[in-house]
């Protein structure tokens, strides 16, 4: 959590889209930006890209106000996927409330996915977060391409971990909202346990998820 201000009655949460280079993290945010009702979100800030690659991060903010008056701001970040930007990844990952791991479905990217996931585990440890506890979803993107790992194979591998897995094609929007919705659900549970979102602020999960994923007309 970036910030919780009991006096101002304000909470700022952080979600991070992690994954190997060019797996479609920014595309996920672009699609989300288009899909979600304008009233509940801010503009997408795409920060200093070079050759179509994120070198800092992208930021998409969402807002909602709980019935009890608590203002919640949810900032969704992407990280740069290139190995050399590890320090930036660590910095962005600090105080994250949830992580979506965006994998590239192409057979040729299997090693990169694996390395990046291991890097996520290391870096979560580095910033003092527990991968067993933090809300986490996995998305296998680029299902629209040929020469991809079969869905059965992916599910067989990931089932054992208990981490929810989504198939997507971010470029067409398929699976983007499902991934986000699941991450937001988990994040609600995680925050509710510690801050009593329902108990103290009258905000239930359906309202929380509903507001953050309200589709644009």
């Amino acid at each position: 959590m970036i910030e919780y201000d009991g006096i101002d009655n304000r909470m700022v949460l952080k979600l991070v889209y992690y994954g190997p280079a060019l797996s479609g993290k920014t595309t996920n945010l672009l699609r989300l930006h288009d899909m979600v009702e304008q009233e509940g979100r801010g503009e997408l800030t795409v920060l200093d890209t070079k050759d179509d690659r994120t070198i800092f991060f992208d930021l998409l903010p969402f807002f909602l106000t709980a019935p009890g008056g608590l203002k919640i701001k949810l900032k969704v970040f992407t990280v740069p996927g290139q190995v050399k930007h590890d320090a930036t990844r660590k910095a962005v990952l600090q105080r994250a409330d949830g992580v979506a791991f965006i994998a590239d479905s192409q057979v040729s990217e299997e090693t990169n996915n694996f390395e990046s996931f291991r890097n996520l585990e290391d870096n979560l440890g580095f910033v003092g977060l527990d991968i067993e506890k933090i809300p986490l979803v996995v998305q296998f993107n680029k299902r629209d391409l040929g020469n991809i790992v079969a869905e059965d194979d992916i599910r067989r591998v990931w089932e054992q971990t208990g981490i929810p897995v989504f198939m997507s094609s971010a470029i067409t929007g398929t699976g983007v909202m499902e991934t986000f919705r699941e991450l937001v659900k988990q994040t609600y549970d995680h925050i509710d346990r510690r801050y009593g979102l329902m108990e103290k602020h009258g905000l239930d999960k359906t309202a929380f998820v509903g507001k953050l994923t309200l589709p644009s007309p």
Partner: peptide
């Protein structure tokens, strides 16, 4: 943008 970039840079 420039503030965010600067702060990320500082954090790094």
């Amino acid at each position: 943008k420039s503030v965010l970039a600067t702060e990320t840079h500082m954090a790094v």
